[in-house]
Amino acid sequence: MQILLAEDDDGVAAALLEVLYDHGHDTRRVRHGREVLTYHRGSDLLLLDLGLPDIDGLDVLRSLRAVSDMSVVVLTARGDERSVVRGLRLGADDYLVKPVRLAELLARIDAVTRRSAARGAPEARKVRAGDVEIDLDARRVVADGTDIELTTKEFDILAVLAARAGTAVSREQVLDEVWGEAQHARSRSLDVHLTQLRTKLDRPHLLTTIRGFGYRFGDAAD
């Protein structure tokens, strides 16, 4: 498993890296919250300390959840009830207070991973809205029996939205999943590709802009 470890204490990080390596996990260690938001893609699970030197870990978790549903286990010295409740409500999958027994940490990681796999198992790989069918695996779009030719980026954007059909998807999440980060510099490119995508689909009702937030794919009449 690919694990991202956000821990600024070198001693704690060294112990965790050793035990994770011994149990077959490929782990990347970062010291700052901003690095979590840069490098989370490509990792399956985040071990998150809340006392990071640049950004509070709860703020990192809040920002991460705007763009990613990756598994997160909080691993911190903060054991007060308020911090635990806030961490779980912000989207942490588990919350452990230091010092933690390493065997328990490994068991919690396994449990979170199993739950995440169970959630993802039934995900549909074909999405239909009206007379439009999107095959996410074959990267094919058919509208009223006719293939719609899309560029790579156009399909990637459509796939992010179609995989969550009927659900509001933030602009930041689209940027993150298509370009690798929620970069504001890419916002203009996203607008251009969305315009082209709407033109090719020729079904304005399928792609709805949610002002101030993002987009939703799906026919409101479905």
Rank of each mutant, 00 (worst) to 15 (best):
G42M: 05
L45W: 03
V36Y: 11
H32G: 04
D49R: 00
V36T: 10
H25E: 13
E35H: 04
V19I: 13
L47A: 08
G24W: 05
V36G: 04
G42C: 01
R28H: 06
R41H: 06
R31S: 02
H23T: 15
E18N: 09
L37Y: 10
T27M: 04
V36Q: 02
E18K: 07
R31D: 05
L47G: 05
L46H: 10
G42Y: 01
L47H: 09
L20S: 08
H25K: 07
V19R: 08
G24I: 00
T38V: 09
E35L: 08
D44V: 03
L48W: 13
Y21V: 00
E18R: 11
G33I: 15
Y39T: 01
L48G: 13
V36E: 02
Y21I: 00
T38D: 09
D22P: 01
H23V: 10
S43Q: 15
E18P: 03
H23D: 15
D44M: 07
G24R: 05
V19D: 08
S43A: 14
H25A: 13
L37N: 08
V19L: 08
L16V: 02
V36S: 03
D44F: 01
A14R: 12
L47S: 03
L47C: 03
V19P: 10
Y21M: 04
L45S: 04
L17Q: 14
R31P: 00
R29C: 11
D44A: 15
L37H: 11
H32A: 09
V36N: 02
H25N: 12
R31I: 10
V19Y: 11
A15E: 13
A14D: 15
L20T: 02
R31M: 03
R29P: 01
G33F: 12
R31E: 09
R29H: 14
H32M: 15
A14W: 08
L16D: 04
Y21T: 02
G42P: 06
R34K: 13
A14S: 13
D26L: 07
D44Y: 04
R28Q: 07
V36H: 08
A14H: 08
L20M: 12
A14V: 07
H40D: 14
S43N: 15
Y39N: 02
T38Y: 12
R34S: 14
G42K: 04
H40A: 10
L17G: 10
L37M: 14
G33Q: 03
L17K: 05
L46Q: 02
G33S: 10
S43E: 15
R28E: 06
L20V: 02
H32L: 15
G24Y: 01
L37R: 03
L47T: 09
A15I: 06
T27S: 11
D26Y: 04
S43D: 14
L20N: 10
L16I: 00
V19T: 12
L47W: 08
T27V: 13
G42T: 03
A15T: 12
L16F: 06
L47N: 06
G24Q: 07
